[in-house]
Design a protein around this nucleic acid. Structure first.
Length: 304
DNA sequence: CCTATTTGACCCCG
DNA sequence: CGGGGTCAAATAGG
């Protein structure tokens, strides 16, 4: 068992780290050439980051696995809270949940994860290959900038528990500290840095520098998904750079993120590598048996 | 109409 | 008790 994990670990290291190394080399070459577009260079940087993040995540999960391999899996905490269903407290009377007073019910009945696999990076690039959906933002006590909370877009469709937090670093402008928590269990072929099926939506967080002078913080996070021709053109990736703009009361437009996963998710196990799927599936916190009902059903809501 | 973001309320835990 | 993470109503935008 232990040897198996070691073998997998080595495999992962080979795969992800070597890939990261190759990408880094490419990036270096790109940067040394003056004339070339910087967009591709930054794209590469994002991919490199993603590759290493993946490797770290996988290794981390393996460590968790092997530490609790046989005896007690006390360290596994990813499972959902079950006792919170409706044991002690009755829900509200069923209706009138509108806005009358404090909202009661099972709100906040979540399990706070203690120590799932978590790592933090600092980067000016808010972009990665996953699909995130913002679900919250908070002012942090000693921090100048608020923190934004994201969850995987496929949380409910596929039960993916990955989340991420983004907060602007106050020391260096244009830097963000990005904390990833949990590994993706969703099968997104967009997560593959393989071919240029990359759809880079570049995120842009603009945060207000003021403390709290107006009740409406103009914190906006735009996910701009640019025109990626799924044409196999050579210049596959045209990605715009996340430029950090501090705007105060500018109005902002945001494109809603589009998910181009049309249909082939059922067969999407192709390149993702059985290793990753296997390991993530083994990752412990995977108690959904009924989430298979939730067919992939991506929001292909084009022209209903 | 739909889905994503905003934003204040709510809840857990130190 | 309060900070920080999450929920969900309201809103924005297609």
């Amino acid at each position: 068992m232990d040897t198996t994990n070691k073998a997998i670990k080595l495999k992962v290291m080979n795969h992800q780290l070597v890939e990261g190394h190759e990408l880094a080399t490419k990036l270096q070459q790109l940067l040394s050439q003056p004339g070339l577009g910087q967009g591709s260079a930054e794209d590469l940087a994002a991919k490199i980051l993603e590759t290493f993040n993946k490797a770290i995540s996988i290794l981390d999960s393996i460590e968790h696995l092997s530490s609790s391999s046989s005896s007690s899996l006390a360290a596994v905490e990813g499972s959902q809270n079950a006792s919170c269903d409706n044991d002690g407290k009755f829900e509200d009377s069923g209706d009138s949940r509108k806005r009358l007073g404090p909202v009661k019910g099972k709100r906040g009945c979540y399990k706070r994860k203690k120590r799932s696999e978590t790592w933090t990076t600092q980067s000016p690039i808010l972009e990665d290959t996953f699909f995130w959906r913002k679900y919250g933002q908070k002012e942090i006590l000693n921090a100048k900038f608020p923190r934004s909370y994201f969850r995987c877009t496929h949380k409910y469709t596929q039960g993916c528990k990955a989340t991420k937090q983004v907060q602007k670093v106050e020391l260096e402008p244009g830097m963000f500290s990005i904390t990833y928590m949990g590994s993706h269990t969703c099968n997104t072929n967009a997560a593959i840095p393989k071919v240029n099926a990359c759809d880079n939506h570049h995120d842009e967080i603009t945060m207000d520098m003021e403390e709290h002078k107006s009740p409406s913080l103009t914190t906006s996070m735009k996910e701009e998904e640019e025109n990626h021709r799924h044409h196999g053109s050579s210049t596959g990736n045209n990605l715009v750079w996340p430029e950090i703009v501090f705007e105060e009361d500018h109005h902002h437009h945001h494109h809603h993120q589009a998910i181009y996963v049309s249909g082939d998710t059922s067969t999407s196990i192709n390149v993702l590598g059985s290793q990753e799927l296997m390991m993530f599936g083994d990752g412990g916190d995977f108690e959904f048996s009924d989430n298979e009902h939730y067919a992939i059903f991506n929001s292909c809501s084009n022209l209903s």
